[in-house]
Structures are given as structure tokens and as C-alpha cells.
Design a protein around this nucleic acid. Structure first.
Lengths: 208, 208, 208, 208
DNA sequence: CATGAATGAGGTTTCATTCAT
DNA sequence: GATGAATGAAACCTCATTCAT
């Protein structure tokens, strides 16, 4: 009836929600099965193990994300535009796969230590390189402040964006692009009123 | 239960480190005991349960933090100065009790749902009120931008600060006050070069 | 249940090989299905259960074996010739249904305790009677040594023959009759050089 | 009270009996625990896994056995005496650790395929070398028949001895040395009356 | 204070079996 | 005849917790 890959995707989505809500380790395989309307053992018809479920969730997320990032990085944009595009891309990913991003944010530090999840560590290194390069290019070009440690800035931007996955709800009133715009406004220009600033007053409340 | 509060504090510190590194649920009581150089069962001479260990860690953290926050809030500062003081206070707490903050950041969402940890939810509500009030005072006073949704800004600031606990190392080259200063520079003024800005070039690299 | 007895026989042969190689309990129904090129569930079109598969394998083996044994026992041979004929018959069975014999050898002790496999215990009793009678007839007739406990000799002969199923390969260089001949040479006359012996030098290497 | 290594040995002995009786795979960890008077989970205080239990049983058996074998092989005996000593040693091992030998006999073929049990395969190769060398020495010296394939003889002797572990009971009427003597009488001189033979009539019934 | 040994609940996983298609 | 998906029982194992010593 429903073709197999579709069922798999449903189950992965269900599992991702539970993992995101309870934490990977605190989530029992039975809770996932409950949420999917089946018995715990039945999950093993579709997946090898609990580990393989998160692995598939995280790989799917990273593959898609890097697809978007690579497109941005290959577009030959300036540093500020690159940053804007990367952040927008990230919020789109949060919009589409919020639970996967939340899992990534909360669990990858602990998981990355395990051989099976070495790809997480690899991806983290690529993130760092990507962002540092962009920030340093911006520093050299005079569009990003020179008085900030780029590694500190990198962590600031990285965490600030991903942590949004823990509260973002895709059914809110604003598109991911709109949220990205407001986030970028804060990250780039700060929340304080600047001497030269001309507030445009367009920002509105974002539903939780 | 026992006469030696110093041993207790050592054990709590050890437990906090393990919890912070592995996650609460993924940490076994035996791992804590290993790290403390004793057998798992021996921990129960000092503590009632695993839950009571995190509880004590988190209560200790929150008590200390609110001590500092209340002092700031009672000092009659302006919104910008209040914000600066709160963020500085937070980094001091990260400096002193990094693992506790990391646990709070990662686990409190899941724990808060349980009766025993209702104090976490209460504290979260107090956080929200405190920050929203400060941000709104700042908005009314014209020191914080009016074009940003305060609830979005609140989450942005909150996450941005606490998440630092996951990478901050107390043995780094900079004092928590210095890190707070740089963080505030980013949050308040952004990472982009502003038209009116006079970079002072004092920021330096912060060791991980 | 089904019209194709040939398919059934194929499946039984496949199952017997897997059981012989891995042991009955350690063999999963899925492994058998894999070896047969189908899914586990599909086996249940042909057989009622895993138990019924071994049962059929073992019954088939014992029926055929007793057919041969009964022919020998009814032929009115002397004890030494009876023994030679029984051993030869056994090696023919090993040749034709090696895996079934190996299963019988390894699993029948454990299976025989179960009601369903009572026929194994019955067959074992018949074996014992048959061999003991033959050996005792031979003792009385002076063709078998009188200084050996017949029950010990029985076990010696029985195990010595059946255990060969675990290494015998039907594609070796020697016919089962030839192997039986050499085995009988050892069992009857020993491996030591006898004072009166006239070695004929005909024995050759037997392929594994 | 009872010191730890002693408890361990008790548990291993209990486990060995159950494994020998039911087969490794068919034995549940709970059955072992039942036999030991504890709960299944409690076994894991003493052992890492079911696998590690058999491993320890088999290693213990092989270590002890090779201790005895090496002493024999280093004694500079002739081939016939070497064979007699090895068989006697084997029956002593069956006497002391019957269940371990039975497990070895029934399970080692299947287990040896697994990395963890590679030591079984190694030991099997050493067995083969040891026996083949002895048999060939005997063939060259004219004490073992030259008309038999040594590899066939090797299997015959090997199986014939070990398989006795499946019926031997240490509380029987005969010492292991006495059983070895009778077994050697059969293996060396056969069960048939030889032309030159002088039966001494000393052999008696051996209780099962 | 700490250990060694155990408990008991529950977790992940396996597996024979069923059944609609 | 076979598949795909699921069931349910039971397997192995983990782990917080207890307690006599």
C-alpha cells in the first residue's frame, strides 16, 4: 500500500520527534514504537538498531544541509552575503527538519566520540572551516569587525543559529526566511540602537 | 545524612562533570563512582539517588545564580547596564560551575516536565520575566531596537549566553568578565562593521 | 499441504545443511530462507514450524537407515558380517544424507527429551539393542573379544561411526564402501601392527 | 565469606553443566542463573556476557589439557607410549572437566568461526599436528599399521576419545585410567579376536 | 565509609510465527 | 508460492538501588 521508503521516512520523522523531545539516551525504543503505532520489536523490521535510527536521521540532515551550503559556497558571494545565505539556509533546514537539527544540536557532542558517528566530527570540522573562512574573509574585507576573535565569533554564530531549533515551530506565523532576516539583524547589527541606525519598524512578534 | 560536606561537594563536582560530558540519562551511576574512585553502591552512602544528585547540582547552580541576579536587579540600573551586569554574572557562573550550567542548558527542558524538577520550570519562568522586563524597559527607553520582537530577542540572548557553557574552559586565557565583554559587544552591536563604529582593536584570541 | 514434493525435498536439504553447520538452536529460520532464496515467512507455506523441519529431516534419515539395517538384520548373517554390513550401511547413509546424520549426532540427545521427538529416543533404544545383540552374539561365537565390556564397545562403535558425519564430504576420492572398509579395519583389528598381521598396503589417502 | 575466585569457579562449573546438557545456543542465561540460585542479571556481576562464560570454560579446559599434553610430549616417549599417555591424559581431563570437554566436542566447530573463539581453531591445528606427528612416527617405526591413511586415523582417534565425554560419568565404577586402558585396547588392537591374541579377561562392565 | 554481591525492573534486540496482499 | 509487515514472547544485558559485612 504505502511504498516502503515512504514508511521508513514516516518512522524516521516520528523517531526524530521523540528523540528531540526526550533526548536520545532517555528515549526508549518502545516509546518510538508507541508513537508509530506498533510494537517495539516491529521497528527492527525497518531498522537495525536504535543507533542506526539516529544515524540515519543525522546523516539525512547533514547531507541535505551540506547540499544547501555547498550551493551557497559555490556561488561566489561576498562574505556578508555568504553569511546571510548560510544562516537563511540553516533556518530553512530547521523549518524542514527541526527535530533532526535539535538532535544534532543536543546529542552530537556526545555521539561524535563513538566510531560509528565519526561523520559528525568530520562535519563539525567542515563547519568550522567554512565559517572561519567566511568570517576571516569578511574581516579582511572590512565588513566584519576586526576587534573580535573569529573563533569566538564562530561559536557565537554557530550556537546562536542551531539553538533556535529547540524552540522553533514550523507552524508559526513567520517563514524561515523572515526569522533568518531578524536573526541576521541581531547578529550583524546587534540589539542595541546604533547611533546611525534608522529603525524601519517592520519586525513583528513571532509565534512560538 | 553525613558529616562531611566537603566530600559531598567533591562528589557533586565529579558527577557534574560526567553529566555534562555524557548527558544525564546516558551517564551511569557507576561511571560517576569510577570517576570518584569508588564503587557504585558506595555513592548511596552520600546520596539518595541519581536524581537527587542532579537535583542538588541544579539547585546549587540556580541558587547561586539568582543570588547574583537579584543583587543586579535590586541595584536600580538602567536597562543596558542591567543587561551587561546579568550577562557578566552569567559568565561568572559559567566560570565557577561550568558543568552545572551545561547540564542546566542541555537537560532542563526534559527534566522540567517531572514533578521533582518543577523548580526548573519555575526558574525558567522567572528568567523569562526578568529578561523580557529588562528588554522592554530598554525598548521603551530607546536603548534597544524597537524593530525586534522582544520574545525573539529574549531567546536569542538567553541561548547565546548559556550555550557558551558547552565550550567554555575555565583555564582559558581570558577572565569571564573579558568574555562577557566581547559577548556583549556582539549581542549589543553586532559583528558587522557599523557606519559610525570606531573599532578599538583590543579583542584577542580566546583559548578554548 | 502442497503439490510440489520436489521443492520440499530441496528445502529440506538446504535446511539440513544449515542445521548441520550451525546447530539447530543457533540456526534461525531466516538463515534457512536466505540459503533457499526466499523470505523467512515464505517457509511457512511449506512447513508448519522450525521443529517440523528438523523432525522431517530426522524421520527421513531414520526411516531410510532402518530400512537398510532391517534388510541386513533379516539376512541371517554371522556377527562379524552383520557388523560389517551395518557399518557399511551407515557410511552409505552418511554419504547420501550427511547433514541429516550430523544433525542426528549432535542434536538428538537434546531433542529426544521433548515429546515431539520421542521417536529419537525409541530409535536410540533400538540401536542399542541391535548393536548389543550383534556384539554379544559375536562374543559368544568367539569372533569378538571377550575381555571388553559390550556396552563400552557399543558406545565406541556407535560414536566412532556417526561422528564421521561431521567431517565426511561426499565429493571425496573414496566411495563410502571404501571408507567403511578402512574404518572396519581399524575398529576390528586396531591401528597397531599385530604380530600375525600381513599388511596389504592397499589403503590410500582419503580426501577430506 | 567464600572468596571471589571460588564463587567464579562454582558458577563456571554450573554453567558448563547446563551448556553440556542443553547445548550452548539452546541454553538461556536464566537457566544458568536458576541452576546457580540467582537471578539472570546477577550473573553479569561476575561475567561480561554469555559468550565470555563459554570462552572462560573452554580456555580453562584447553590450558589444562595442553599442560598435560606438553608434559607428555616433552617426555621423549616412543610413539605407542606417547599415544597411550595422550589418551590417558584425555580421559583424566574428561574425568575432571567432563562438561567442558563435552562443550568443546559439540560446540567448537560452530564457535571457531567467530573471531572471539579463534583460539579454538588454533588449538585444533595444534591437535592435528600433534597427533599426525605421533601417528607418522609410529608408522615409520613400524608400530602403527602402514596401510591406513594417517589423516583418517587421526580423525578416528580424536573423535573416538572426545566423544566419550558425552556419556562418561565421573562417579562410575572405573577410574579414568582404567577406561583409557580399555579404549586403547580397542583402538590399538581392535575389537575382533586376533589370531595371535591371548585374551586376559580382566575387563569388566563400566557403569554409565 | 566503602565493598561485594545481589535484586528487579526495564531496556534493546532476536526470532519464530502469522497474515493480508 | 512468495512478499512485506507486523506480532509477541523471550532472549541477552544494563543499571539504579539495596544491604550485610
Amino acid at each position: 500500500m504505502t511504498p516502503s521508503p515512504e514508511r521508513r521516512r514516516q518512522l524516521l520523522a516520528t523517531a526524530a520527534e521523540v528523540f528531540a523531545a526526550q533526548g536520545y539516551s532517555a528515549t526508549t525504543v518502545r516509546r518510538i514504537a508507541d508513537a508509530a503505532g506498533m510494537l517495539a520489536g516491529s521497528l527492527y523490521y525497518h531498522f537495525d538498531s536504535k543507533d542506526s535510527i539516529v544515524e540515519e536521521i543525522l546523516r539525512g540532515f547533514l547531507d541535505e544541509l551540506w547540499g544547501g551550503y555547498d550551493a551557497v559556497l559555490g556561488a561566489g558571494l561576498g562574505p556578508r552575503e555568504t553569511m546571510q545565505a548560510l544562516v537563511t539556509e540553516s533556518f530553512r533546514e530547521i523549518d524542514r527538519h527541526g527535530p533532526a537539527v535539535a538532535i544534532y544540536q543536543k546529542e552530537s557532542a556526545a555521539l561524535a566520540a563513538r566510531e560509528r558517528f565519526a561523520f559528525l566530527a568530520a562535519s563539525q570540522r567542515r563547519f568550522e572551516t567554512t565559517w572561519l573562512t567566511t568570517l576571516e574573509r569578511g574581516g579582511a574585507a572590512g565588513v566584519f569587525r576586526a576587534d573580535l576573535d573569529p573563533r569566538l565569533t564562530y561559536r557565537f554564530v554557530r550556537d546562536t543559529v542551531w539553538v533556535a531549533a529547540s524552540w522553533y515551530r514550523p507552524d508559526g506565523r513567520h517563514s524561515p526566511e523572515e526569522i533568518a532576516r531578524q536573526y541576521l539583524a541581531m547578529v550583524l547589527d546587534g540589539i542595541a540602537v546604533q547611533a546611525s541606525e534608522e529603525p524601519d519598524g517592520t519586525a513583528q512578534s513571532i509565534a512560538e
